[in-house]
């Protein structure tokens, strides 16, 4: 996992809950907290931090991961505005992930293991993403998508009819656009 993810989490936690909250999370997770954006760190660190977050706020881990994702997208927009300004809606933005965003991410962070999504964009009101990753971070993806909805001011509903965490061979994230 690239350090930038940890940096983003730190930024959100500090912004919403103050400096001490971050230190508290680090202690609870039992991680050293030295993350620099270009470095690579153990996936388990993120898992531990998310569990600690969930524990702290008294919510399920999935909700905490989704919350993290949703808050991440607007921060990415600040750091990398180009990826967002090229598009006018969530659909266009999401469809560019494989071909534009992830290649660019790999340029910024050599060695980043970005997932590849399969798309079914045949339905005008719906967009279906196939997600396969050892990290099983489909909840983070859900959060990022909700965050994109916030960025483009669109109301979305998301559900996963198929999920690796329920024993399926992949996750299927279905985004419904409300008009």
């Amino acid at each position: 996992m690239k350090g930038i993810i940890f940096n983003l989490l730190e930024e959100i936690v500090v912004r919403d809950h103050g400096e001490d909250a971050w230190d508290l999370l680090l202690d609870r997770a039992g991680v050293d907290g030295i993350y620099t954006s270009l470095g690579s760190y153990a996936d388990a660190d993120l898992g531990a931090l998310m569990n600690a977050t969930a524990e702290t706020v008294g919510q399920p881990t999935d909700d905490a991961v989704r919350w993290f994702g949703r808050n991440t997208t607007p921060l990415l927009r600040v750091r990398y505005p180009d990826f967002f300004t090229w598009h006018t809606d969530v659909r266009g933005f999401v469809l560019s992930v494989n071909e534009i965003i992830h290649p660019e991410v790999r340029k910024l962070y050599p060695g980043a293991g970005t997932p590849s999504f399969g798309f079914d964009d045949s339905h005008p009101d719906r967009l279906v993403l196939d997600y396969r990753s050892e990290r099983r971070l489909c909840m983070f993806a859900e959060g990022l998508l909700l965050g994109a909805g916030d960025v483009y001011a669109e109301e979305l509903s998301i559900h996963q009819p198929v999920c690796m965490r329920r024993g399926d061979d992949r996750c299927q994230i279905e985004i419904s656009f409300k008009r």
Binding site: N7, S37, L38, K107, L108, P110
Partner: peptide, 17 residues
Amino acid sequence: RREAEVISERSTRRLVD
């Protein structure tokens, strides 16, 4: 730290490009 990271990201990106 953030600024240092951005600089580093940029040069990495240029190199990769």
